[in-house]
Structures are given as structure tokens and as C-alpha cells.
Design a binder for these strands. Structure first.
Lengths: 201, 201
DNA sequence: CTTGACATTGACCGACCAGTCAACTACTAT
DNA sequence: ATAGTAGTTGACTGGTCGGTCAATGTCAAG
């Protein structure tokens, strides 16, 4: 049972990396198995199909995003709006490091898969949609808190949080297409305007 | 020569639709040829490879975007900032109609291909990058004009235009992943905040 | 009427695709 | 000790992948 979990986890990890750095349709089951050092027959013992693996990879990627980004950014050691700024900094630092290591900006794993698969697999689309919705929550909470604290005038926190995260997705498309993590920093600066429309300069 | 151009054009049109509604890696050369009613041997008379076809498709898609969206939105019959609002309306109307016809929101053809191919084909990445850069220009021009007219305080028009178009890309990712064109309208409302930071409410 | 360029065709290539399966091994609970 | 379960293996399927090629067809300029 320990070994089984380990095999399954190795498959997920291998797929996560390959699909993120390439794309779902470009990476085959065989290649995933090679990287995970698992025979293909064994793969189908753990996953009924390739798309079920993609679903598991999405769960895994969401967990990683929380560990490495969201749970680090949204800590109440600093004011709520500063946490949002910290979010952008962490995302920038992450992609800057990845670019240094690999030469590439790979963008957002959820946006990537959403763009590739949303019109082709309803389950994958729904799971990505759910992850995006969930990702808005920490922003929404920070915005509400900022309003309560008086840092922000009355705001529709849910709508604004959604706008911010949509902007984040757009930034990731841009950074990936230009293969330049600096765009995350430069475009990130404008995110505050999405938040504080009433602020004068 | 007429017939030759026609064959080439049929291939491009077929590929444009198939790649836009599915993805580059999911659609094969054979399927493109079937839809274009062209034999595969003939395909390779016009295109040295599938990726060269993708490059041609990108050119075609850019031309279509100008005809159907940009050149309709950015006409100086209305004030510059109203043109940007009109851009969002046209994009919304387009995707609303496509959703009605096909059941799907397909997002942005450039963002889609950029996400899928940027780390895999440098020529495609550069072409998408170029298209995004070019697409910012009408926004930049409108913003500059708005500043000149006094509709807007002094602004870095280039940086703001880029932020807006990045936001547009994010909106398209969201609309595609939620398969809901209404998101374009709802999120589009917030774009003005990217433009007019100093405006009070 | 001939030449040469362009266009078209279908057969073909090796590689790979997702997925199947029966046989086998290793371990666990009784 | 044994029966049952979970995990592993490698051979296999039918189909598709991007791409090649030689033969043939078409047509216009000289």
C-alpha cells in the first residue's frame, strides 16, 4: 500500500511537470511513465484514462499553489492590501527563478490547461473553473478586511477579487508568450488600480 | 495560380477553425486536409510543416481580428475612451453569438496558441508576442488621445494599454474556462479602473 | 508543339498514440 | 498454509501522427 501510493504519486508528479512545461496533448502516457519509472500497464492500474490523470494533476497543482504561493502571501502579519502586493511579488520571484533554471516562463498551470482543454473535456473544464473560483477567495477576504479596516471604501469584494485574479491570468499569458518574468512585475503594478479606483494617484 | 491560392486558403481556413476550437496538438494534418478537401500530399506542397501552417493561421487570425473587432471599435466617431468600451462590447457580442451557435466560448486564438506553444516553438511564440504587442497599439492611441483631449490625466499610455490588453487576455481565459460569455461583460466593467485610476467613483 | 513550373495524388514511412490484457509477483488477512 | 487482493509486467491492438516521394496532371509562356 505504501509502494502503491508511491507509484501513483510518482506518476502524478511526472505528469504534473511534463504537462505544465509542455501541454496535455503533446505529452503521451508513455513519456509520463518513462519519467515516473513505471510501466504503462501499471499506469492503467491507477488511472482509468489519461484525462483522469489530468484531474489528479490539477488537484496536486492546486495544493502546490497553496503551499508555495497563496498560504505564504495571505498571512495577516501585514495589512490586507499589502498581502495582495506580496502575492504578486511571490509569483514574480517564482517565475524568475524558473526562468533562470529552465530558460522558460511556463505561465499558470490552470490557465494553460483551461485554454487547451475547456472545449474538449467538461470535467477538466469544471475542475479548472473550480480552482479559479477558489483562488479568488483569499483576495476577496483580504479586500473585505481592507474595507473593514477603512483602508478601502465600500467595495464589491467578490467582483473585485475576480477581476484581480482574471488580471493575474492575463499577466501569466503575457509573461509566458513574451517568455519574460519581468512582465509579472511591470503589469502587476497596475493591479492596485483594479482595487483602489477612488484613490487619487 | 488562382486555384493554387484557393487551395492554400482553404487549408488555412480549415486549420484556423479547427485549431481555434480545439488545439494545435489535438488537430492533425490529416483532419485539416479532410475539412479543406485537400489531399495530404498537396498540403505539403504549400506548407513545409504543420508549424508553418500555424504561423500562416496566426496571420490570418490577426487579419480577422482587425476586420471584425479592432477596426470596428477604434473609429473616431465617438470619444477615445468610449472606443475602448465599445471594444469590450464587440468582443462580448462576438463570443455571445459563438456560444449560441456552438455551445462554447473559445477564448482568444492568440492567447490559446501562446499558452500551448510558447515553450515549444520559438517562431510561434514570437509571432503571438508580436500580435499581442500590435494589438496594444489602438488602445495606446486612444489613451493618448484621451489625455490630449483632457479626458484623462497624464498617463503612461503604452503601459496602461498593455495592462488593459493583458486584462483582456485574462478575461478570455476566464470566459473560456467558465464557458460563459457574460464574464466578458462583467469583468470588462472593471477595465475602466485600469484606465482611470484618479477618477473618484 | 514543347518546355518547365506549378499542382495534385495516393501510396508509403517509422514512430507514436491511448488503451487492453493475461500472466505473474508480493503481500496480507484469515 | 492458504486464499485473496493489490501491484507489476510486457506484449499487444488498431489507429493516428507528421512527413516523404515519385508519378501524374494542368496550364501558360516561348
Amino acid at each position: 500500500m505504501e509502494s502503491s501510493n508511491d507509484t501513483r504519486q510518482r506518476i502524478i508528479s511526472a505528469a504534473q511537470e511534463l504537462i505544465y512545461t509542455r501541454s496535455y496533448n503533446e505529452v503521451g502516457v508513455q513519456e509520463i511513465c518513462n519519467r515516473a519509472e513505471v510501466k504503462k500497464g501499471s499506469f492503467y492500474h491507477f488511472f482509468p484514462s489519461k484525462r483522469d490523470l489530468a484531474l489528479a494533476v490539477l488537484d496536486q497543482s492546486q495544493a502546490v499553489m497553496y503551499e508555495t504561493i497563496i498560504n505564504r502571501a495571505f498571512v495577516d502579519d501585514i495589512p490586507p492590501l499589502a498581502r495582495i502586493e506580496r502575492f504578486f511579488t511571490i509569483v514574480y520571484d517564482f517565475h524568475k527563478q524558473v526562468k533562470k533554471d529552465t530558460g522558460y516562463v511556463f505561465g499558470c498551470p490552470f490557465g494553460n490547461l483551461g485554454c487547451e482543454m475547456s472545449t474538449r473535456d467538461e470535467d477538466i473544464r469544471c475542475k479548472v473553473d473550480d480552482i479559479l473560483r477558489t483562488s479568488e477567495k483569499p483576495f476577496e477576504k483580504a479586500l473585505s478586511e481592507a474595507v473593514t479596516r477603512g483602508d478601502l471604501p465600500a467595495t464589491d469584494a467578490a467582483a473585485t477579487a475576480r477581476a484581480i485574479f482574471a488580471y493575474v491570468e492575463g499577466i501569466m499569458v503575457y509573461a509566458k508568450t513574451r517568455n519574460d518574468p519581468e512582465l509579472i512585475r511591470e503589469l502587476g503594478k497596475h493591479a492596485l488600480q483594479l482595487i483602489i479606483p477612488a484613490k487619487i494617484q
